[in-house]
Design a protein around this nucleic acid. Structure first.
Length: 183
DNA sequence: AAGGGTGCCAACCGCACTTCG
DNA sequence: ACGAAGTGCGGTTGGCACCCT
């Protein structure tokens, strides 16, 4: 059994103060990202490394685009979710300035409901169809799993990309991931 | 004005994966 | 090859703000 990351020391929890944000930003500006475990102590923060990373990634990063999602972003999220399921980090990776947490929250609060209103099942993006949450065997003996229920969904014998093509026939998204540019 | 209900979002938790000695 | 440590990801929750009665 693995120890929790912040067991040894007393750490702050809950909302971040402005001072804490400032300390974290100052430290990362000077030293860059990484070494999250040792960062809190080095930066003078009573937080666990995980908490620091989350705060930076989801809130403090300078390239974040705050504010409402545009219609094009909504469309893209819906299409990507149809293809990838709940792979929020992958989906967020296609939306510059958006974080996985933000995309996930937006999906759960807005887009899920929107699809339901349009008569679509948010789990599989099919019109008027719902699948049971557990895996089952379909008529043609393919085993399906609910796309929403876990991250292993794409490993099932019939992945969402394949099973959703009937409702999203014209998608042509380039999902290749490029290597970061080196100097 | 007050209390309850609901929605939203930031943050936490636990697990899986990756890296390193 | 193996185990420990570090990191990332997705699900869930807590709490605040707003709305309705």
């Amino acid at each position: 059994m693995r120890k929790p990351c912040c067991e040894k020391k007393e750490t702050n929890k809950g909302a971040w103060s402005k001072q804490e944000d400032q300390k974290l930003m100052d430290y990362i500006q000077k030293h860059g990202e990484g070494c999250w475990r040792s960062l809190p102590e080095a930066a003078g923060l009573l937080r666990c490394g995980k908490s620091c990373r989350l705060r930076w990634v989801n809130y403090l990063r300078p390239d974040l685009k705050r504010g409402n999602f545009g219609e094009d972003e909504e469309d893209l999220i819906i299409k990507l979710h149809a293809l990838l399921g709940n792979r929020w980090s992958l989906i967020a990776g296609r939306l510059p300035g958006r974080t996985d947490n933000e995309v996930k929250n937006y999906w759960n609060t807005h887009l899920k409901r929107k699809l339901v209103q349009l008569g679509m099942d948010p789990n599989n993006h099919r019109l008027g169809l719902t699948r049971p949450s557990k895996s089952f065997v379909s008529n043609n003996n393919h085993t399906y799993k609910a796309v929403n229920s876990n991250s292993q969904a794409l490993n099932s014998t019939s992945d969402p990309a394949e099973s959703n093509t009937s409702s999203l026939p014209d998608l042509n998204l380039d999902l290749t991931i490029g290597l970061p540019l080196m100097d």
